[in-house]
Amino acid sequence: MSIKRRDFIKITGLSTLGLVAIPASELLAEIAKTETSKSGKKLAMAIDLRKCSKEEGCTDCIDACHKVHNVPNFVLPDGKPNRKDEIKWIWKEHFGHAFNDNQHEFLSEKIQHIEAVVLCNHCENPPCVSVCPTKATWKRDEDGIVMMDWHRCIGCRYCIAACPYGSRSFNWRDPREVLEEQNTDFPTRMKGVVEKCTFCNERLSRGLQPACVEACKANAIVFGDIHDPKSDIRKLLSNNFTILRKPGLGTNPAIYYIV
């Protein structure tokens, strides 16, 4: 008996429906899953811009981070930095750009000249996590770090559109082409995926501080569990006036700034 084309199409159609049923069941399980318990730990960072700005032109934290994480440095043929394809996990931004809702004409000159260190805010309500269609980025329950899986990311860049802080970078081209010296303890990325700061989760698991914290000779960056009342970061926050980037958006960032 030969199968008619029409029957073949019907069988193929039905089989496809069957395939759809599998992820559908997983989806239902996902909806049923309620929020997991909160361990209570929340990692955060306080950056003292008073101390930081004393070291004018210092890029120690940036260099340390980008070196340990194999972040490429693309340059144009004429030697200028390639802004279009740029990848950065931590960098300096004019105060007026980083804190544009605090910007005004008569801001003291000292503040206006501040170059603020910016990085992923590890938000409590991260918009990048909600929009990711593959759960390639997620918030870790145990400490609130917003993580990234470069092996799952499909490179749709929805998270970049959703991030209000411009903290995410996309590998527009192969980063391995320009990496001169590699840190073999940390993976390199391939083209076509998004990356960002992960609070050095790989160092934390070895009991180390994040690379930027360690590299700062002015001790301007303090890192710790903000839910622990005895932590250094909590002491710092209770004794100083701190500001957040775009607090009105409801993302609740974990990077605090002392100005």
Partner: peptide
């Protein structure tokens, strides 16, 4: 990895 949170 269906993600019902994502409009995509």
């Amino acid at each position: 990895h269906p993600s019902p949170n994502s409009p995509m």
